Amino acid sequence: MHRIARNPLRLLQRCYSSYPIGNTQPKTISDLYAKYMAKEPITMITAYDFITASWAQEANCDVILVGDSLAMCALGYESTTEIGLDEFRYHVQAVCRSRGPAFVMVDMPFGTFESSIEKGVETAISLMKCSPRVGGVKIEVGTPQGDSCEQDYSLKLATELCSRGIPVMGHIGLTPQRMHALSGFKVQGSKSAKDAVGIYRTAQNLQDAGCFSVLLECVPHKVSNFIAEKLHIPTIGIGAGAGVSGQVLVQSDVLGMMPGKVPKLAQKFGDLHAQSVGMIQQYTNDVTAQSFPNNDKNGFKIKEDIWYEFLERLAQEAK
């Protein structure tokens, strides 16, 4: 007699989805737009690996950003510009192994798209292929200074990617990859009306290029609010005030993973660094004092007859 399956419906399943039954399906752009249209703030946070991504998933963040900030916050580099594509893809894949509903966005690291449109498209495809959970890429876009055409290339790349069905979030205002051109990490659009207009026009151009969202970093809150009201796509802010569609922060800042102060645009919601050092110190103290491990609590027992047989065998071998 043939064995009857416990769940006959499983025999009829067809794998139309990339995700097996039982796993939480990630949010889509439509889900993010639903929150945007309902005027519900979109929550976004960075993650660097499986553990930090799992924390973000369990906290029900809408979007996880695998940002190139991981170069400094997780890998010890002096700048975000130092991380290479292969190393970055490794972390993207680790983040995507976490299970949960968050929409996963990934940065386009410095040096992986600037040389040509073809190279940029190739990089974006490579990142999207890291995992079916990668929902889109983020590109830093320069704001023109005077008669500069700095933004033309990145806008063209964004247009090319959107035309190929790759979701793009444009990143404007303070763009860390261009920190040298911007003379450091400074607020953008606060010194002149012309600069503020440039940021606004860039946001409009990104919307026209087909970007599904725009991230505003270190932009005066009045300017950011104005941009958010004029655009028809979600605006995510970091140091851009409360008038945008959602917020993003670096997870190591939120958790207080490192000692010292965090940037003005961020906020510590805990002090994981101090707690972690304290717990590790307690562990070393317990080992030194020989209070850990405890054989009854942390050890494993052996049956007495097996123990005596063990000793007997060794005694016979010694004869």
Rank of each mutant, 00 (worst) to 15 (best):
L215K: 09
T175V: 07
G170K: 14
I125G: 11
P132R: 00
V197C: 06
H180D: 10
Q145M: 06
R164M: 05
T123A: 06
D147V: 08
I172Y: 04
L157H: 01
Q204Y: 15
E160M: 08
K156E: 12
L155P: 01
C130V: 11
K186W: 07
H180Y: 05
G146M: 08
K191Q: 15
S126G: 15
C162D: 05
S154M: 03
M179K: 05
A193F: 15
Q151R: 06
D195T: 12
K156H: 13
P176K: 00
V137G: 07
E150A: 09
C211M: 12
Y200E: 14
G142N: 09
D152E: 07
G184M: 12
A158V: 08
K191V: 14
K156N: 08
G135K: 02
A181Q: 10
L157V: 04
Q204S: 09
M169I: 13
G165P: 08
R178C: 03
D147T: 03
C149A: 11
K119Q: 12
G146T: 15
I199L: 14
V168R: 10
G170F: 09
G142Q: 05
H171L: 13
T159V: 05
G165V: 12
E160C: 10
K129F: 14
F185H: 13
M128I: 11
F185N: 12
C149S: 10
V214C: 11
V137T: 09
L174V: 01
G142V: 06
G173K: 10
Q204P: 01
I199D: 05
I117G: 00
S183R: 12
K138L: 12
A124G: 13
M179C: 10
R164D: 04
N205K: 15
I125L: 11
M128N: 15
A158D: 01
A209V: 10
P176M: 03
V141G: 04
G210W: 12
F212N: 08
K194D: 15
S183C: 06
L215F: 12
V121Q: 00
I199W: 05
V214E: 04
C130I: 13
R178Q: 05
D208C: 11
E118H: 06
T123E: 01
Y153W: 04
G135R: 02
A209R: 08
G120Y: 04
C130P: 09
C162W: 08
G198L: 02
T175M: 02
L161S: 07
P176F: 00
K119M: 14
D208T: 15
G173A: 09
A209S: 11
G136W: 07
E122K: 02
T175N: 01
Q151H: 10
S154I: 02
Q207F: 06
T159H: 13
T159G: 09
E217H: 08
G142C: 03
T123S: 09
C162F: 04
S131L: 03
M179F: 13
P167I: 11
H171C: 09
Q204R: 14
